[in-house]
């Protein structure tokens, strides 16, 4: 199901926002792999929700605004976007780096959201300075990256089989991911001191086989958010919504009730 994708003009940036389905608002922030709103799990969710999924500037061929330097720029842009869309009691769901963005937004204000869902999310530093909490996706051999990312690594996209245009898009997405997450790598050191401000029900969903950001990381992250709960989906890696869409949608539906 192709969504309607209006461009929303905000101060300093234009954002593509996929919208589809009807029902309670589900504000969905994608991860570093790129937009996910056209995937089967999102279609399924659109049967029960109005899915509202912005494309982070730099992804899917959209330009990176000249003044953008890091995650904070994305977060402030999305504060404006949430106002422009007049979100009201939305469920905010973020995947991976989108989970980080969602967490930053939630500690700023939960006025427009009713619940928060973080999926294999980055954003905090759990271990010590010599612990590699999140695999260095920018310096890991492609085969190992596939093994860390997927429960079934055969699902990883194979550059040799991709059309040039798709491969270029993937490379552009990587640039944007680098911009938002480079340093401090995949986290904001200040976040743990702010997570107490999250006062909406929060669910963390994790793929049991995620080797990029492990379930142990998820459990530690979960412990930092007041009242948060965590569900681990078996036979899924960093993208449980792709590898186990039915289980994933089931957990979202029951949490949303």
């Amino acid at each position: 199901m192709a969504g309607n994708t209006p461009k929303i003009e905000l101060r300093g940036a234009t954002v593509d926002v996929v919208r589809k389905g009807s029902g309670p608002q589900l504000f969905m922030l994608h991860g570093g792999g790129g937009p996910v709103a056209e995937m089967p799990f999102a279609d399924k969710l659109a049967e029960s929700f109005e899915v509202i999924a912005p494309v982070h500037p730099g992804f899917n061929g959209s330009p990176i605004p000249e003044h953008f330097d890091d995650m904070q720029d994305l977060v402030y842009l999305y504060r404006d976007l949430m106002d422009a869309l007049d979100l009201d009691d939305a469920i905010m769901m973020g995947f991976s780096m989108g989970g980080w963005a969602a967490t930053e937004l939630a500690v700023m204000s939960t006025a427009r959201i009713s619940k928060l869902i973080l999926v294999d999310s980055v954003g905090v530093k759990i271990g010590g300075r010599e612990d590699r909490d999140v695999a260095d996706v920018f310096a890991t051999p492609p085969d190992e990256l596939a093994r860390l990312t997927w429960h079934d690594p055969s699902k990883a996209p194979n550059p040799m089989e991709m059309a040039d245009a798709d491969l270029e898009m993937m490379q552009s997405n990587r640039v944007a991911l680098g911009l938002y997450t480079w340093q401090p790598y995949m986290h904001n050191p200040k976040l743990p001191h702010r997570l107490h401000r999250i006062d909406v029900p929060t669910l963390l969903i994790w793929g049991e086989s995620d080797g990029l950001v492990t379930p142990a990381y998820g459990r530690a992250f979960c412990g930092m958010i007041p009242g948060a709960e965590m569900i681990v989906i078996p036979e899924a890696g960093h993208a449980p919504q792709v590898e186990q869409p039915d289980a994933f949608v089931g957990h979202v539906m029951s949490f949303a009730q």
Partner: peptide, 23 residues
């Protein structure tokens, strides 16, 4: 030098980066 060190994000234009990713 393998691809993970020769193709850091934003060093090459995307079209060149795509060719490097392809090996």
């Amino acid at each position: 030098v393998p691809v993970e060190y020769s193709n850091p994000p934003g060093y090459h234009p995307p079209a060149v980066a795509a060719q490097i990713a392809k090996g």
